[in-house]
Design a protein around this nucleic acid. Structure first.
Length: 487
RNA sequence: GCGGAAGUAGCUCAUUUGGUAGAGCGGUAGCCUUCCAAGCUUCAGGUGGCCAGUUCGAGCCUGGUCUUCCGCUCCA
């Protein structure tokens, strides 16, 4: 990361706070690590992004429907999904070098130095201990083999501790004798709320494969390192769509959604050169094929969205753990046999985008510090957020040039006319130039100014944020003109 | 978690060796202004991150603590 892009990132964070987009959580108590709050402009922008996604999924696809599942889920959900076992890595620290290791990495690195037979025996033993979550046994394994820290060269280890990905809490007001009875997790992904409702949705909405279920909502993960502003948060919001397909067709649907999702991003008018795919080589336990859509943030190319071919892993797991059939009966005729495709567990293509990351993407892509040459030879500066008009917190600022001569009355009338259709901002104080700059700073795409000519011929000037150009139009056309640009 | 740096007004920063804090910008209210951060005036805003210690006296010295930033470590 260069110093310059680092400075831009810092400037964006400051700007976000100063103009009411993003505040550090609980700031008066010195903040809470990796948690942030969205302010007045931020919550509008975030909502607009969410709505834009939701509409593109559910309204623009007649084979995708939405749900809103609870954050709390039955704890067995997370055993079935693999989150309980696969995402709690045991860790160990060397007391001399202060280095922290994942226990499996430490033992595997040591095993690589051994002859083949000894190596395999050691790995086997480790895996059995891991499966039994026998931390004492793993520690003994490290001690018995005198495994050293590569930095300090000593065997002075702490006890093995578990790193928990999921937040745990207690369910029910009455304590149980067995504390495990009451544990629920805050969901680490929204996807499982879709999977456990697969048949409910399919039957009640009368959906036929291929079809999708969309959902937006909060998810929670204990990150090891909490940095990089809202890019990596402990509480964050996902926008996910799980698309259920006939087995054997998952390859073509994976390709379809991989392409469709990038087009969604480009449809916002963002420079294609700032995007790239990152295909996964090493796949998660549930994945068949997977890629990320990465965006060039000021901190480098980072993942915004993932497209995963999850096979029938999740539904099969839930069938296993719940003992409830998750079959779908496909009445369509298979041309190969002349008979219906019949019963099967559908395969799933997942598209999963981080709403907060998308927010940061829009902010990063929009932020610009501009130098403007003035007529007298000096230069002016402005900070402008070139937020796509359809996502901007405010669509239109209505500005009477002065507070006199009946101009505020005309402006208020225009405000009342436009308000039901899109978010407007009214301001009559300070010089017009200052008001324009304030709107630039929060990304308002259009300003109209009511001046002394307005009462005479019912025209106003409309000023465009990106070019700073203005033109004179009839006041009666303002609403439809803006509406046409923001829909 | 480890190492380094930094915490003074909403923001950016001053306050020469210890003597109870200032400026610019921003905000507020008004005047004047007919289109890009203009001018004049008004007002508000800080127990100097927090807690101890040294001292007659601490924003400044000492210790602790918290937070943030940078680097390392980890990352489905």
């Amino acid at each position: 990361m260069s110093t310059q892009s680092d400075n831009i990132f810092q400037a964006i964070i400051s700007h976000a706070k100063e103009y009411g987009f993003v505040f550090p959580s609980s700031e008066i108590y010195d903040g809470l690590s990796a948690v942030y709050d969205y302010g007045p402009n931020g919550s509008e922008l975030k909502k607009n992004i969410r709505d834009y996604w939701w509409k593109s999924m559910t309204q623009m696809h007649d084979n995708i429907v939405g749900i809103d599942a609870a954050i709390f889920m039955h704890p067995t959900t997370w055993k079935a999904s693999g989150h309980v076992d696969n995402f709690s890595d045991p860790m160990i620290d060397n007391k001399d070098s202060k280095k922290r290791y994942r226990v499996d990495h430490l033992i595997e690195a040591y095993a690589d130095t051994l002859p083949e037979a000894e190596k395999n025996a050691l790995i086997d033993e480790m895996q059995q201990l891991e499966a039994a979550t026998d931390y004492a046994g793993l520690k003994k394994l490290i001690d018995d083999h005198k495994i050293k820290c590569s930095v300090s060269g000593t065997t002075n280890w702490t006890e093995i501790r578990q790193f928990n990905l999921m937040f745990k809490t207690e369910f029910g007001a009455v304590a149980s004798d067995n504390p495990d009875d009451n544990i629920v997790y805050l969901r680490p992904e929204t996807a499982q709320g879709i999977f456990v409702n697969f048949l409910n949705v399919q039957k009640t909405a009368r959906m036929k494969v291929p079809f999708g279920i969309a959902q937006t909502g909060k998810a929670f993960r204990n990150e090891i390192v909490a940095r990089q502003f809202i890019f990596r948060m402990r509480e964050f919001e996902q926008m996910e769509m799980q698309f259920f397909v006939r087995p054997g067709t998952e390859g073509e649907w994976y390709k379809y959604w991989k392409e469709a999702r990038l087009q969604w991003h480009l449809g916002l008018g963002i420079n294609p050169a700032k995007y790239r795919y990152h295909d996964h080589i090493k796949l998660a336990h549930y994945a068949k094929e997977a890629c990320d859509i990465e965006f060039e943030f000021p901190i480098g190319f980072k993942e915004v969205e993932g497209i995963h071919s999850r096979s029938d892993f999740d539904l099969t797991q839930h069938q296993l753990y719940s003992k409830k059939k998750q079959n779908y009966f496909d009445n369509d005729i298979d041309p190969a046999t002349g008979k219906p495709y019949g019963n099967y567990i559908p395969y799933v293509i997942e598209t999963s985008i981080g709403l907060d990351r998308m927010f940061l993407l829009i902010l990063s892509n929009s932020y610009e510090e501009e130098a403007i040459p003035k007529e007298d030879g000096t230069t002016d500066s402005r900070v402008v957020l070139r937020i796509p008009a359809k996502l901007a917190p405010n669509k239109l600022a209505i500005l009477p040039l002065t507070k006199k001569d009946g101009l505020p009355e005309i402006a208020t009338k225009l405000m009342d006319e436009c308000k039901p259709y899109f978010k407007c901002f009214y301001e009559e104080k300070d010089a017009i130039g200052k008001r324009y700059r304030r709107q630039d700073a929060i990304g308002t795409p259009f300003c109209v100014t009511i001046d002394n000519q307005t009462p005479i011929d019912q025209t106003v000037t409309i000023r465009y944020r990106d070019t700073m150009q203005q033109e004179r139009i009839p006041i009666s056309q303002v609403k439809d003109l803006v509406l046409g640009m923001v829909m």
